[in-house]
Design a binder for these strands. Structure first.
Lengths: 211, 211
DNA sequence: CAAATTTTTGACCGATTGGACAAACGTTAG
DNA sequence: CTAACGTTTGTCCAATCGGTCAAAAATTTG
């Protein structure tokens, strides 16, 4: 092992240029979708010629695939961290907060994912029905345990997870609409804190067991 | 006025064929986005040749624009109906129900809209910042009135509306993911009723004023 | 240094794209 | 029936698409 990872052996330039391309491709793919994006667009955004880009990634699909693989690892990290050890309400609250922070800090990744799902998930369908389903089922079981123990209100764990995904990712995927509706005053940087406050109230008061 | 509407005068065949094209275009645009869709795809889905399609709509953009105009009217109807006359909690509950029904019955329209927003809303931005913002502000004022009257819990009306949009449209836009995660058993036709039950509990228990 | 290797580029390819156009075909009113 | 009008199609076009290739330029290695 000379490269430090199990990647194919790569030079310094290859590392840097591939990173540059992936960064540019994230920008382009996330706003135009796969079919709507062109290699020329990505190459221009990366500041290189098309043949040069194709020297690092032989096909357009290879770029998208690499981007997608990286995305899913980090994207599901917050859910993986959802654990049985802490206080249930606190765990859920911090899961929501983490997801909202990801929508704020990685909106392009969120949109890339949304584009893929919107188009029928042709490239990651097996992953959804396999790895993702397994993870969600596992966490749903944890949540069910909390419900049985009376720590949170009884409801559908799967749809609870969906609603957390939907509400948080909304601030990345529909950002344009959110800012347009909130207007210049409330649509500024503070909108994520407002959203955090609102979501905390919505979910916690809704989930709190009757006292 | 001979045609009964203010449309340009059209023959029977034009009416029918234009409808056929719009139906096909809805299918294609909603799954591939604007740039990712081709006139040939739409023509084939509509069962006609490309030149024939271009006889009814001179440009690809014209089809998309027509589709978009129709969409927005029906899409915002549920929010327009949100009224000050009924019981606040009942009003909100039926708004959520109506939006969920639209996600179930018109998923392609939802995806068409999602695609447009995801791509930065280049074709409807003025509408968002104009008509839509006005409508939401108006309804937010209604909701604020309910809060002041102690009918529902105090929270941010704008983000409340966002969360209703997000959670309901999720079942149309991310349908593939929802079904993959729920699996064959729970991902069938009953999933919308499960979602309705869950959302009602989430929102109502969260909004109920402290007694 | 010089040789070997890696990186970059310009020119090019066939396929597909959005769209134009005139000719052919259908339909209908007089 | 026939002339006028509406509809459909085959052909064509310039631009753009994803991708190739050989040669030039830059870099690394000995």
């Amino acid at each position: 092992m000379t490269t430090g990872t199990d990647h194919p052996r790569r030079t310094r330039i290859q590392q840097e240029k591939r990173e540059l391309i992936l960064e540019a491709a994230l920008e382009v793919f996330s706003t135009n979708g796969f079919r709507g994006s062109t290699i020329d667009q990505i190459a221009e955004a990366a500041g290189m010629s098309k043949p040069n880009l194709l020297y690092y990634f032989r096909r357009k699909e290879d770029i998208h695939e690499t981007l997608m693989q990286r995305l899913l690892d980090t994207w599901l990290a917050p859910l993986r961290e959802l654990d049985d050890i802490g206080d249930p309400l606190t765990e859920l609250r911090s899961y929501i907060r983490r997801k909202l922070e990801m929508a704020r800090d990685f909106p392009r990744e969120s949109r890339l994912f949304a584009n893929e799902i919107l188009q029928g998930a042709p490239r990651i369908m097996p992953l959804l029905a396999g790895e993702l389903k397994t993870l969600v089922d596992e966490k749903a079981a944890v949540i069910k345990g909390w419900m049985r123990a009376g720590k949170i209100a009884r409801t559908d764990p799967w749809h609870l997870i969906f609603s957390i995904w939907a509400t948080t990712q909304h601030y990345a995927d529909f950002d344009v609409q959110v800012r347009a509706v909130l207007g210049p005053n409330r649509g500024g940087d503070g909108r994520f804190e407002d959203a955090a406050r609102f979501l905390e109230q919505l979910f916690l008061d809704g989930l709190k067991p009757k006292t």
